[in-house]
Every structure is written in C-alpha cells, then in structure tokens.
C-alpha cells in the first residue's frame, strides 16, 4: 500500500560544502499533521523546499503520490506597493475559480470582508489567512505551511493553529507545518519532527517534548511552562543541561542558541 502523500528517504543537502540536511527520512500521510521544529538555521525551510521540489538534491530519494496537489504557504512575504492588487485578485492567481467560489472559501477563513481591499493594506495576521486561503483554493492533498504564525500575536497564533486542524478535518488533507515553538502547535499536530540538520527526534508531540534531544535543543526549563507566562529568568545555555546525553552534531555550533523564538 502506498497511501502516503510524500515519502522522503535519507535526504541530504549540501550547499557550498556545508551540510544543510543530513539523512532525513519522513512520510506524510493523508489527514495527518506533521510539524517540523528546530532552531534557526536547522534546515527547516530547506527541507520544505526540497520536499516541494523548489530545491534539488542528489542525496536520498523522494516519492510523491501521483498528481499530488500541494497548497504552499510561504513564509510571510511582502508585495510591493507598486503592484496594484486586491485580495480577491491575489486569490484568483494560480486557479480558475469564480469570485463566488473564492468568496465561499474566504468566508470560512474569516477574510471575506477583505476581498476588495488592496493586498498591501491587510494586517500581518490577516495576510497569513489570505495566504492560507490561496493555498486551500487549489484543493490540495497536502498543505505546506512555512511558519504560518509568523507576525501573528499569541492569541491569534492559537486561533490559527486551531483553524489549521479544523481545515485538516474538513478537507482531509495532509499538513506539513514549520514552527519553532512546539508548545503552541502541540495540540494541533499529530507528529513532530525535531530537526537540527539531522533528525534529532521524532514522534508524538508529548513524547518529543520530553525527549532529551529536544530538551537539549530548546532547554529543559521550557518544559511544562505555560504559554502565557514565559519567564525569562531561565538559562538557554546548552552546556547547562549536562545531564542530557550528548549529540555531537547538535553541538557543532555552540554559539547558536537554539532558543531563539520571538517573545513579542
């Protein structure tokens, strides 16, 4: 049975003699949400680009379901003000849908009132929903979301992740999501893959959040912390967590503090 959407085996990627990805294997199944987490520079976006076919690599193999339709939501991007474009026109790109059909999907994501506005005038959180709508309009088998909660405040983030899991339920599509905060996506994800060039650990979110490799990357003091009360008196130094097992490849860049998510 090959019911998978994407199956990657032993993917590696080298750019300018630097190993960006090393021996990554993963499978995304229909209706499953897989979240990639990892510190900045851990290769999350590169892995997404390889899976999307935007970046080519000679190492490893990549299988996709026949006629796989992917709805891709790139990291937040900027549309120059010199390009006059309404939200509706933006959503009409890449598909042949009528305004009515677009209206329906836009309503279900709560952005119907924005359709006539210039795409540059919507807020960060609204634009993320616009991007999500555009990805959904393609009726994808697989949604690929690169940092979907970027630029969204913390309440909005939770809503967005709830929305993503609802979309999975409604559309039955697989979801590959990139995030750097496991605790926020925990409820919305079935499987987590913790990445730092190689796969540090993988599994159910609860299991990953207790995994020593994960704790080493993100600091044990994060464990059990409530989302809204993020104390800043803890240390992010890897070396402080000397009781966790060693993982040489995680520590190749000790200056790069893994705990670099945004507290804004």
């Amino acid at each position: 049975m090959n019911s998978f959407l994407i199956k990657a085996e032993h993917i590696g990627l080298q750019i300018n003699q630097r190993q960006i990805l090393d021996n990554i294997s993963l499978t995304i199944n229909p209706g499953e949400i897989l979240t990639l987490i990892g510190p900045n520079g851990s290769g999350k976006t590169s892995l997404v680009r390889v899976l999307l076919g935007l970046l080519e690599t000679k190492q490893g193999s990549l299988q996709k379901k026949d006629q796989l339709v992917i709805g891709y939501m790139p990291q937040k991007f900027h549309i120059d003000a010199v390009l006059p474009m309404s939200v509706l026109r933006f959503l009409q790109m890449g598909n042949k849908l009528t305004p009515d059909e677009i209206q329906t999907t836009a309503s279900s994501l709560g952005i119907a009132s924005l359709l006539a506005q210039p795409v540059q005038s919507v807020s960060g959180g609204e634009f993320q929903r616009v991007l999500l709508t555009r990805a959904l309009l393609r009726k994808p088998d697989l949604l690929v979301l690169d940092e979907p909660a970027q630029g969204v405040d913390i309440n909005g983030q939770q809503q967005l992740y709830q929305l993503i899991s609802k979309i999975r339920d409604d559309y039955g599509c697989g979801v590959l999501m990139v995030s750097h905060d496991l605790h926020l996506v925990m409820e919305a994800t079935d499987q987590v893959l913790c990445l730092n060039t190689h796969i540090c650990c993988t599994g159910h979110p609860e299991a990953v959040s207790k995994h020593p490799e994960y704790l080493k990357l993100f600091g044990s003091s994060l464990d059990g912390m409530a989302v809204y009360t993020h104390n800043h008196d803890h240390s992010h130094d890897f070396a402080a967590d000397s009781d966790v097992p060693n993982c040489s490849s995680c520590e190749k860049n000790p200056l790069q503090k893994a705990h670099d998510h945004d507290h804004g």
Binding site: Y72, F77, M85, M93, G94
Partner: peptide, 19 residues
C-alpha cells in the same frame, strides 16, 4: 500574463503552483 504576474508576486509560490 497570469504566469508573469504570479512570478512578480512571489517566484517560489508561482513555482510551487506549477508555473
């Protein structure tokens, strides 16, 4: 036109959508 416009908006998104 549609392809040119897609690329002007976001090249990678256009590429991922099969342009």
């Amino acid at each position: 036109w549609e392809s040119i416009l897609s690329i002007a908006v976001h090249e990678e998104l256009a590429r991922s959508e099969g342009v």
